[in-house]
Write a protein that binds this DNA or RNA. Sequence first.
DNA 1: AATGAATGAGGGTTCATTCAT
DNA 2: GATGAATGAACCCTCATTCAT
Lengths: 184, 184, 184, 184
Amino acid sequence: MSTPSRADAVRNRQLALDAATALLAEPDTALTVEVIARKAGLGAGTVVRAFGGKDALLDAAVAGLLRPVVARGRELAASNEPVRALRTFLGELMAFQAAHHAAGDNLRGLAAPETTALRAELVTAVEIMIDAGRRAGQVRGDLPIDVLTTIIGESAYAVARSGSGPERIDVFLTVLLDGLRPST
Amino acid sequence: MSTPSRADAVRNRQLALDAATALLAEPDTALTVEVIARKAGLGAGTVVRAFGGKDALLDAAVAGLLRPVVARGRELAASNEPVRALRTFLGELMAFQAAHHAAGDNLRGLAAPETTALRAELVTAVEIMIDAGRRAGQVRGDLPIDVLTTIIGESAYAVARSGSGPERIDVFLTVLLDGLRPST
Amino acid sequence: MSTPSRADAVRNRQLALDAATALLAEPDTALTVEVIARKAGLGAGTVVRAFGGKDALLDAAVAGLLRPVVARGRELAASNEPVRALRTFLGELMAFQAAHHAAGDNLRGLAAPETTALRAELVTAVEIMIDAGRRAGQVRGDLPIDVLTTIIGESAYAVARSGSGPERIDVFLTVLLDGLRPST
Amino acid sequence: MSTPSRADAVRNRQLALDAATALLAEPDTALTVEVIARKAGLGAGTVVRAFGGKDALLDAAVAGLLRPVVARGRELAASNEPVRALRTFLGELMAFQAAHHAAGDNLRGLAAPETTALRAELVTAVEIMIDAGRRAGQVRGDLPIDVLTTIIGESAYAVARSGSGPERIDVFLTVLLDGLRPST
DNA sequence: AATGAATGAGGGTTCATTCAT
DNA sequence: GATGAATGAACCCTCATTCAT
């Protein structure tokens, strides 16, 4: 029968994904297929085969990390306190980046369609919040919105690089959001 | 005389450096010794020998890019219009990063003493400007200065990632500097 | 079961070891990883991976050659005809060296813990035989024992260099053992 | 004129030779052309050109070391106290080997015609001494002479390997020469 | 379907030799 | 003729992928 083995395949996919995800948080680990496989308790071949290549595995792992953040972004985009929502969202995004700050680096030079798509959704969520903030008169309207979202998105990455803790993230957010306020 | 052949050595060192520097601006190129050597029109051995290793070559290339920026930073740190100086400096720093946005990534995991030293000088220059800005009442005093400098430094990196052009840099600076103003 | 593929690994490890061992007997061969791999019918990566480096492979190869000799030495050290035992042992040791006379040279400058340990055991065995020979009045007592063992050990190496056949070994042993007899 | 530059060539040949010779006594030095050149105060090209290749340079260096030893051998071969002469000669040979025990190893795999020829002469000298010793009844006659000379020649190398000092050499000689005495 | 050993291209580096200066 | 920088083949090793078991 093929059903039970299919179940195994699903389980192994998840094991590989979990291992890769865990390793993304360890900045000084090599992140080779063999290391991932060992952490997953699988063979190297299984790990590659489960995703069709290392690129796809890492894409899936980073996407898996990003997905709940994006979901949260969609949720917060519906808030009627857009600036507060933006701060909350960016705080969570940055905390995620800080916790897995090897994620971005390990994706370098790889095809990562899932992650790319999620990043776009993330930008959309930010866009909605900014737009709502503008309509509420809480966010400055003198700058092009697409540039603002890009800046905000990339800034999250910046914090990740410095291995920043919560207090640093908070300072950054204070500066960023004060800068986004309408100029008096 | 011992100068003549040395002249060639200097020229080729520069060729290798130029090639590496040029490649730092191409984010999707592999940046192997052989690629650098081919671009420089030299043999692979020559490139390694000229700098004593790939690490040292990349360090030198990035440092070469960073050096004039840092020099400019020292100059601007003496300005008596600190906020304007800060904006000018950050604009130049970010333009540099944007032009060579593979620089930081390619240095990952390498020993890069020159670049590290320059980065420290860069932070010092920013610190001076912020401090002067505070004394002039133009920069907020409610946040720890070392966190501000880190944030600012990392932000420059953020812009680099997005391959941003001048207008994007300008928007970022506007937001950042407005956020750094004393809260009313 | 996990044994089946492991069986191949063991077989190939042995293939690499055999190839290296065979090449140790060819004084004018380069003994690079690739040469060993080709002789073993394996890829270069496999050979390195199987032992964790060229050093370890050569150490293992030489140790593999030395091990039975040392075992025989321990056996003969228990003999109650110490001089006869010494001659037998040295004969076998030299025959081994003669058969693989590139062994020592190829280990030069390498970390070879196994081989080093075996050499020490070898010296100990000789020491025991000489000591027994002295107590039996068959070996001269006028010379320091540690010097004798060194000399004997190194002599075996000497014979190896000349690619000597059995009759040469025999002559050397006659001279050496006559020289070790108590002076009348 | 070509005469003065010829003089320079001769001088540089000697400088290269001296440098190589000196380095042969340092077992843990790399002995690359560049190292030799630096020690000689010459350029790498000059060192290679002076001898037509690294092999020839090392051959010449080792031969230069061996030559006086061989000369001394010829001298001592004329002695009418052959056994005493043999001991003296072997002592000097071994002291030479001990002082330059990197010599042999660095010649490995190289064409070294000069050194090879000298080694043959050295063997001849030993042969003469042994033959004279036999006629004087001081050296055993029951063993083939060519084997004895080989053994003796190779033994000198053995001592070199162990980095032996004078006392070790002396012990070795005592054993060896006692072994060469006619069996009673 | 999973395994994990084998593969082999590609990485940085070394070094005897060559050749423009 | 001397120089020493450039060369490029060869070295050992790593690792994503493949494939016999």
